[in-house]
């Protein structure tokens, strides 16, 4: 039975609260739904997904609520959390090589997951492991089950990781940059697989990625993170094709490959690090639309229609913001 994941007002800080990595983040993934969490390195997107599995470093100071179905995950004991991981909520990571044990045959690795959650015989676990390998698209799974991770390509290893994540039949899958280390053709296969799983099994999917197009191809809803905050959210099509936050526009502009422009559009400067984030709009210093109001105080999320929300006081000006606003002399900026 799939349960929805809900995060309310999550704040995660390090260094005795001095460095706020995530500020007041709320999001929701219903069963069968795919939410894309988009952001650049350091935006806090991976941390948010790890928090849901209780995988935060010990020095993290956490407040807010994370619920899966009716369980409050932040209040569970390590033992209770362990029982939920895998069977209710599972995660796949970016790097399939360092996440697999190099001296365990992949079939055994998958069987172990099954047997740690259910009392089944070795034979039965093995049979199910092979079945899973087949489902994630590994050819001649019975023979391949006896291979070691190094005998697989990157894409096949990621498929093994997905098989392991699915072994205990979780209702919610968190995928943290699952295709970033893979090339485009392999990536297409993995994305198709994730899409099938959520459609056919009613599994919820939280896809964390820096790649807007990857997220858009898979998700119904998108949340864009910048410097520890969600700055825009809504239905995927609306966020991508009618963005109302200048940062989203800048991100989209930098993916455009129009030959008529001599240069790629790019956002000047870099995001503020956790210790140096201002108490007003965090994008203000890089924004082409910045005004005094932007620096007057914290900016809330504004409704801009049909479930779309943006953290910007100038959402009415954003639609006219073209790609040109982000084309600048590359030497004038500081990446």
């Amino acid at each position: 039975m799939a349960e929805g994941l809900r995060i309310d007002n999550l704040t995660i800080a390090f260094d005795r609260g001095r460095q706020e990595a995530i500020s007041d983040l709320s999001l929701q993934v219903s069963p069968g739904e795919a939410l894309g969490l988009v952001g650049e390195s350091g935006s806090g997107k991976s941390l948010a997904s790890r928090a849901a599995l209780g995988l935060l470093p010990a020095n993290a100071k956490v407040s807010g609520r994370i619920t899966l179905g009716d369980r409050s995950l932040l209040d569970l004991s390590p033992g209770q959390l362990q029982a939920i991981r895998g069977s209710r909520i599972a995660m796949i990571f970016q790097d399939p090589m360092s996440s697999l044990n190099p001296v365990v045959r992949v079939g055994d690795a998958i069987s172990q997951v099954i047997r740690s959650h259910e009392t089944v015989s070795r034979g039965e676990a093995r049979r199910r492991a092979i079945e899973l390998m087949e489902r994630v698209g590994i050819r001649s799974p019975a023979e391949r089950a006896t291979s070691y991770p190094h005998e697989f390509s990157g894409g096949m290893r990621q498929r093994i990781m997905i098989a392991m994540a699915l072994a205990a039949r979780p209702g919610m899958l968190l995928a943290d940059e699952p295709t970033t280390a893979l090339d485009v053709i392999v990536q297409a296969g993995i994305l198709r697989l994730l899409d099938e799983l959520r459609r056919n099994e009613g599994m919820g999917l939280l896809l964390v990625s820096h790649d807007l197009a990857v997220v858009a191809s898979l998700c119904d809803h998108i949340a864009v993170m910048y410097a520890g905050q969600i700055v825009e959210e809504g239905r995927a099509g609306d966020v991508l094709f009618r963005p109302r936050m200048p940062y989203t526009v800048g991100l989209l502009a930098s993916t455009q490959r129009s030959k008529s422009l001599r240069r790629l559009a790019s956002i000047p400067g870099r995001p503020p690090a956790p210790g140096e984030r201002p108490n007003h709009c965090r994008f203000a210093d890089r924004c082409p639309l910045v005004t005094d109001t932007c620096r007057a105080g914290p900016i809330p999320m504004f409704d801009v229609g049909e479930g779309q929300r943006a953290r910007c006081v100038r959402t009415d000006k954003v639609p006219s913001l073209g790609t040109d606003a982000f084309v600048r002399d590359p030497l004038a900026v500081d990446a």
């Binding site: 993916t255 790629l264 790019s266 956002i267």
Partner: peptide
């Protein structure tokens, strides 16, 4: 993505 554009330019 946004840094990619800066380096390409």
């Amino acid at each position: 993505v946004s840094v990619q554009a800066q380096i390409v330019n």
